[in-house]
Design a protein around this nucleic acid. Structure first.
Length: 385
DNA sequence: CGACGTGTAAC
DNA sequence: CCTTTTACACGTCG
């Protein structure tokens, strides 16, 4: 049977969730911010509501830049005595709210619960998106799949008060591209026969998985659209990208992909934070790492996860990132990670003497789920579950 | 092959 | 002067 896959993407997820908590904010320009704590306004925007996006505020901007955009907008509106619809909704009063990932995770988990009731298989792909395989339930019928998507959108709206956009296609890649087509509150179906036409005119950089670097290289080769990429001579691509990646690029251009929708367990957990001031002092760094590891501990303990590999992440004053890691002989808990981190940090600072760090963090990986322990060869040595 | 470090990508 | 978190590919080393 022809596979049918959906991709659901929540609309400006963080901002919409905050608007639910504080209904007076609904429809207003909101910027959900990660305040780094270094200065009053240091940090970045993690998500912006649609009213804020209309002012040019979007995820990734520094909070300072976002405030400048908000101010510029207000000034322009005042100067013209203008009250256009988007700005009647509250220009000049962009709400800059702190981001609350714990809470967003709770909402996200409930939405995934809904999806699991509606689909044959669900794969979470980030806090605000998920793939669903609906082949069996739709009986391979695109119209039925569309009805299912409408039902999912209705349930998410009724039960969580949130809108989302859904794309439907013959595989995950096309479904993902389709969900981006119409937002917010969109629904886009791309049948197998329509895949070619759907992708052909898209700039290569818009294809999921092709970022700035790859798009730049392709453009340098005169390849600008998916159709041009699909038709590009194999030889040139392989010279630039190697065999494996070339094949991947070609498949993207053609919308060919067939990986299953499957529940995945995280392979690593990490936390990164900004130091009050740049430092090369092991003790100051350890203090920050202890705080960060505490929040990781909560997440791991709750799920009964242990790990073998600890990675120290250091980001210097020029924003260059370096890592140092060590794998232990047996699975460990967070308490055992601290002495390992201390070792990694001190070797790091002596190696990069004079290079002060701005941000530090840690990653825990090589995970073991459940209560079993594991020896060096990765064999389960106690109870299987 | 496992371990380690880096780059790319998406969020 | 700028966030966070995760995944994965690739090169290299022993």
């Amino acid at each position: 049977m022809q596979r049918i896959v959906m991709h659901l993407d929540m609309d400006s997820f963080y901002a919409s969730v905050e608007a639910l908590r504080r209904p007076e904010l609904k429809g207003k320009p909101l910027a959900i911010c990660v305040f780094s704590g270094r200065t009053k306004d240091s940090g970045a925007v993690a998500s912006a509501s649609y009213a804020a996006r209309a002012m040019g505020i979007r995820a990734g901007l520094s909070i300072r830049e976002a405030r400048a955009k908000a101010a510029a907008w207000t000034k322009a509106a005042e100067g013209k005595g203008d009250r256009s619809p988007s700005d009647a909704q509250g220009s000049g009063e962009v709400a800059f709210l702190p981001y609350d990932i714990e809470y967003y995770r709770q909402v996200s988990d409930r939405i995934v619960g809904i999806l699991e009731e509606e689909a044959d298989a669900v794969q979470q792909a980030g806090i605000d998106e998920a793939y669903m395989d609906v082949t069996d339930r739709a009986g391979g019928d695109w119209d039925r799949a569309r009805e299912m998507a409408l039902r999912i959108k209705r349930r998410v709206l009724e039960e969580e008060g949130l809108t989302c956009s859904i794309g439907i296609g013959p595989n995950k890649f096309v479904a993902k591209m389709a969900s981006k087509r119409q937002k917010p509150d969109g629904l886009t179906v791309v049948r197998t026969a329509d895949v070619g036409g759907f992708l052909a005119g898209l700039p290569v950089g818009k294809l999921h998985g092709i970022g700035g670097k790859t798009a730049g290289t392709l453009e340098g080769m005169g390849i600008r659209t998916a159709a041009e990429l699909a038709a590009a001579p194999e030889k040139g691509l392989e010279e630039a990208f190697g065999e494996r990646k070339s094949r991947l690029l070609r498949e993207k251009a053609l919308g060919l992909e067939d990986s299953p929708v499957e529940r995945r367990l995280p392979k690593q957990f990490s936390r990164l934070g900004t130091l009050k001031e740049d430092t090369d002092d092991t003790e100051a760094i350890m203090e920050k790492l202890e705080a960060l590891s505490g929040s990781l501990k909560k997440r791991l303990d709750g799920k009964g996860i242990s790990f073998r590999t600890v990675t120290f992440i250091g980001i210097d004053d020029r924003l260059g990132l370096r890592t140092r890691s060590e794998t232990m002989g047996e699975t460990a808990d967070v308490a055992k990670a601290l002495p390992v981190l201390r070792k990694l940090v001190s070797s790091f600072v002596s190696e990069f003497r004079g290079r002060k760090l701005r941000r530090v963090g840690l990653t825990l990986s090589n995970l073991t789920y459940g209560t079993e322990s594991r020896d060096v060869k990765g064999q389960k040595s106690l109870k299987e579950f």
